[in-house]
Design a protein around this nucleic acid. Structure first.
Lengths: 235, 235
DNA sequence: GAGACCGTATTGGTCGGACCACCTCGCTGG
DNA sequence: CCAGCGAGGTGGTCCGACCAATACGGTCTC
C-alpha cells in the first residue's frame, strides 16, 4: 500500500510521525495557520493508528508547533517566537541549584544587550508604557503586584529592543514561577529599595537614549540577583 | 474515589497529567534518574486512561524531561541543560526569513560572550582540542567535514566558557540543519577564506588569553553571516 | 428578507482492552 | 561458577467505541 522509499524503521512509529510532520512544515508544505487533515486521515496517510498519531500531535502541540482545537481541527501555529519558545519556561521551572545561576547569567547577557538596544530604539509610546509600570511598581507594597509590574517593565523593554526571539527567550527566563522562586528569598532581604533604584537607573538611561548606560544598569540589575543566588548556593 | 482538592477541570485531562508530573519533579518528589511507576500504574493513580497518560509521557519526553526505555520503564532524565534545551534546535529548524536573522543575533551576543569567557578560562587540554579542529578544518575541502569541525570548534569554546546552559543554547542555535541551511548559500559565495581567517583570529585571542579580542573576533565572525543573511532576505 | 434558533455532521478528547517487541532477572543445567 | 534459557514485566502499537465541543445548514419567527 505504502510505497514510501523513506520509511525504514528508525525509532518508534510515533517518532517517525513527528519527524514527518515537522519536515512537512520545514519544507513549506504546511503553512502557518493552515489546517491539517483530521487525526483519522493523517493516521491513515502515514499508515499508523490514530493513537500513535495523537501522541505525535500532542508532542508537536507542547512544542508550540501545532494547535488542536476541539471540534474544529488541528492547525499549524503562526510559528512565531512566542509560540516556539514557550517551552523555554519549562527549563527555568525545572532548574535548580547551579543551573539557576547559569540561567541568570544568560539572562544578564541578553537582558543587558536588549536594554541597550531599547535605549536606541524605544518609541515614546513604549517608553510611556515602561514608565507606567515603573510608577505602579513603586506605588504598592504588595509583592505579587510588584512582581507583576516588574515583569511587565522588563517585557516592555525587551519588546522595544526589536528582536522578538530575544524577547521570547527573556520571557521564558523571567517566567512567573522562576522569578517567584528566586525573588522570594531575595526580596525578603530588603532588596526592595535597591531594586527600585536599579529600575530607576534603567529608566533614566532609556530616557537619555544612552545604550551604554542602559547596558550597564541592566547588567548590574540582574547581576545583583545573580550574585545573591550564587552566595545562597555556595553557602 | 478521587479526593484531590486540586482537581478542577482546566484544559484537557492529558494537559493536567503533564502539569502533575512536572510539579512532582519541580517539588523534588521525583529525582533525576529516578524511575517512575509504570504507565498503567500512573494512569490509575491519576484516574485517567493509559492512552491519555501515554500522551502526557510523550509530551514530557520530547521536552527532554522524561526518557522511556522500551521494556525497562520510564525515567526522569538528568535534567541537564543538554537534555532540556534540545528542543531549542527545533525552533531553529522551523524558523525562516527574518527570524533566522534574529536567531543569529542572539547567537552573536551569546557566542561573543562565551568566547570572551573562554579566553579567560580555557585549559591547555581544551585549547589543544580547539586547535585540532581548527587544523582539520583547514586541511580539507569537503564542505561536510568543514562544517563538522566548524561546529566542534565552536562547541569546544562554548564548553570552555564554563556555562553549560549557554553552551546548550548555542548548540541548538548551531544545530546541523540550521547551519547547513544558512551556510550552504553563504559558503557558495567563496566565504571559505574569510571564515578561516576569522577562526584563526578567534584562536589567536584564546591563545593570548585576551577576552576583549576574543569577544570582538567572535562577534565579527557571526556578524558576517548575519549581515549576509540580512542582505539575502532584504533583496 | 434578515436574523435567531436548533439539530445534525464533523472533529478532537477519552476510554478500555488486546496484542506485540523488548528488556530484565531468576532459574536451570552444564 | 557461569552460560543459556525462559517467564514475567514494561513500553509500543493498534483497534473500536463513545463523549464533548464546534461548525454548518435548515427552519422558524418577526
Amino acid at each position: 500500500m505504502n510505497v514510501d522509499e523513506t520509511a525504514p524503521q528508525k525509532g518508534t512509529v510515533t517518532q517517525r510521525a513527528i519527524e514527518r510532520i515537522k519536515a512537512m512544515i520545514a519544507e513549506g508544505r504546511l503553512e502557518p495557520g493552515q489546517r491539517l487533515p483530521t487525526e483519522r486521515d493523517l493516521a491513515a496517510q502515514l499508515g499508523i493508528s490514530r493513537s500513535s498519531m495523537r501522541e505525535a500531535i500532542r508532542a508537536l502541540t507542547v512544542l508550540g508547533v501545532l494547535e488542536a482545537r476541539h471540534g474544529s481541527g488541528i492547525f499549524v501555529t503562526q510559528l512565531e517566537a512566542g509560540d516556539l519558545l514557550e517551552t523555554f519556561g519549562v527549563v527555568a521551572d525545572l532548574s535548580r541549584g547551579p543551573r539557576l545561576v547559569e540561567l541568570l547569567e544568560v539572562r544578564r547577557i541578553l537582558e543587558s544587550t536588549a536594554t541597550a538596544l531599547a535605549a536606541a530604539r524605544i518609541t515614546p509610546d513604549q517608553l510611556a508604557e515602561v514608565e507606567k509600570h515603573l510608577t505602579a511598581m513603586n506605588a504598592t507594597e504588595d509583592p505579587e503586584e510588584i512582581l507583576a509590574h516588574d515583569l511587565a517593565f522588563h517585557r516592555e523593554i525587551a519588546a522595544a529592543a526589536g528582536n522578538d526571539t530575544m524577547a521570547a527567550i527573556l520571557e521564558g527566563l523571567s517566567s512567573r514561577t522562576f522569578r517567584a522562586r528566586v525573588w522570594r528569598g531575595y526580596q525578603e532581604e530588603g532588596a526592595f529599595t535597591r531594586t527600585r533604584r536599579e529600575h530607576a537607573a534603567i529608566h533614566r538611561a532609556l530616557v537619555a537614549r544612552d545604550p551604554e548606560a542602559a547596558r550597564a544598569a541592566a547588567a548590574a540589575h540582574v547581576g545583583e540577583v545573580e550574585e545573591w543566588l550564587r552566595a545562597q548556593i555556595g553557602g
